[in-house]
Write a protein that binds this DNA or RNA. Structure first.
Lengths: 216, 216, 216, 216
DNA sequence: GATGAATGAGCCTTCATTCAT
DNA sequence: CATGAATGAAGGCTCATTCAT
């Protein structure tokens, strides 16, 4: 079959490489990019495969189908971030103000600034299509994130740093500008040639928020 | 809408009368529903047609293709809301605090509460696919909305109600909890059986925000 | 798009014709051929479409999916044969012997001799893979055919023509040489250059069977 | 099958021992099951491999491709049965009636009752796809079987037990209810919850057939 | 203007076959 | 010998778009 006249003894590179262990992660990484760029329905698995350097069929060696791949992307990328936030909160010994600020900044660094920011966007866009996944995401990411932040605020109320407020609502309000910015920033990147000054945005949010919730 | 509006002089009335001029709007209205429910890629034009009471082919008499229909949906539904807000701001004579609160509540009533809330969600999901539309949306809706709100804040700073802050950032921060809630609420409706208490959420946001930005 | 330099005013034939009423039958006819030739699993709908002079997509305008198409083939080809046999049995006034013989010969003429003979073969080959289809075929064709024949035999027993035997078993035994011949004949056509003398085969079957079941 | 059969003299026994020579047979046995269950096209080689306790690739060490495996299944499983029948016929000393009955019952026991019953079904389903194999099967199984049975009938005619009939046709008619039952029984097993009473079916067939062919 | 039959490209998924290990 | 990761060619099905009626 080989038309190559003189196959070299050793240097001819194989048509493909066996990379069993690395493949799932490579595929998830490629899938994250494409899903975020094109949305779930708009994503062709052929694209994901190409970006991962394999062929379509290979995906099915590691994931049952497109939906399973999508779930793997969500699961393996975003959940760890929440866990990390929880760990920080538990080991933190300073004031509630400081912890809140640090969580906000850390979330931005881990999510807002990275490709992960696409996940919330994706989830919101595709929630209606994947009720089960949406439930998973809501429970494991959204609600957990809110509980984390609510705990911080409660701590602040108890030790007199914060005014008494509904902690769950306050938690959501601490996060929503971040979530929204993560989504908006990607969506309108090309519309804001001056860029979106995230640092200033975060600073202002923290400033307004902490002023707003402070005891007096 | 009224079938009786213009009775023809001739007694022989046509079996049905196609309101040629109403068609595009009917199609846009139907399309809004479906796009919001299913997303752009997930929307089948056959669905839109069925919901508008016509057949697939008819859509192409009024819109060049799916993309054109999508653009028409965005263009024709969301802009009026902003205009209404601007009118309110100009005629308003009370304090900046009161105006800000009223704009926030009005926006929620006009957008968050209605099918229009789907538009921001849609735009964020599909921004990458339609750069030109995104630019339009950003200029005519997002930026204009921000300018509107920035004007209010500036008014508040000038007359001593508010602390001096970056007005554009503060404007974004006044809106982002609303935008985010509009998106989240639809996406996770099924995950929050208790529902999302919007009134309390808005109250808390306004409370925290105004405390945060108040002069002292 | 048209590369044809000078499209004639009227004679240029359209790319396709609208043939709504005729299409289902044309598709079923084409499908019968291909299913019989290649088996159910081996049949590509593209082949069916090509043979019917349309494209793949057209099939789905008339049949929900491959299975529905297959059912339609069975329904519109084999089931009528059974119905015809039932009608004959009801209107028949002669002896049970004569009726049995006539049913056997008629079945052969309508099924064994025609392309329909491929259907039983198909069903037997693919039964395990498509349980629902099999159930449909069994109920609508096999069981119904057996009941028909059992009725005839019962008639013969009652009026003293036939010995008392288990009527369902006897019914199956009256049909099985036919069924088997229909299958075998197609399968081994190329192996029997002398051909398979069906007339003599049928004659002998009827002779042996009627001798076997006769009262004395 | 016994792992303990040939204890190696050396104490260092290999962790597992691959019986190179047994492999093809194991594969053929596994393939028989799957082919019969699912048909040729419906059979996934991965299934065959799994059932044989090896992996897909291994099949290709012993068989050129799927077709070759299929041929091996047919060739190696069915021929022995015919040979056994021939042996019985030659050594038999009783009446033709008794021999015919015994052959019928034996065939059922060896084929109808076992996995081998699937082979005729398979051959009929796939005859068109494998002409060469079909020729082989027809010559070595079908024709040989018919000749065997024809010899018995001829014996019966000669010694006055049977009426003079076309022996080849009568032979086919003696076998066809068996062949058909073997096929039907598997195909429609799930449709006959009451089961198919084979014993009664055979008894009735033998009864009707011998009555039908008896001298008077 | 309106219809809806027909097209054709594209997608997800399966699986026989190959080949690096 | 054996493995099983990877390939690549179909196949079923959907749907935006076209166009004869």
């Amino acid at each position: 079959m080989s038309h190559a006249a003189v196959p070299s003894k050793r240097t001819a590179k194989p048509r493909w490489q066996r990379r069993k262990d690395a493949r799932p992660e490579e595929l998830v990484a490629a899938a994250l990019e494409v899903f975020v760029e094109r949305g779930y329905a708009g994503t062709a698995l052929a694209d994901v495969a190409r970006r991962a350097g394999v062929t379509k069929g290979t995906i099915y060696l590691y994931f049952e189908n497109k939906e399973a791949l999508f779930k793997a992307v969500v699961r393996s990328t975003i959940v760890p971030v929440i866990a990390q936030g929880e760990a920080l909160a538990q080991s933190f010994t300073g004031s509630a103000r400081e912890l809140l600020e640090q969580l906000v900044r850390e979330y931005w660094q881990l999510v807002g600034e990275t490709a992960l920011a696409g996940i919330p966007k994706l989830m919101m866009a595709e929630a209606a299509t994947f009720p089960e996944l949406t439930r998973f995401y809501y429970d494991e990411v959204v609600a957990r994130g809110h509980r984390l932040m609510a705990g911080v605020i409660e701590r602040g109320i108890k030790n007199g740093e914060f005014r008494p407020v509904d902690v769950m609502l306050a938690a959501k309000l601490a996060m929503s500008p971040l979530m929204h910015a993560a989504v908006v920033r990607r969506a309108f990147a090309s519309c804001m040639p001056e860029g979106f000054n995230v640092r200033a945005y975060l600073d202002t949010h923290i400033d307004l928020y902490l002023h707003g919730i402070a005891k007096q």
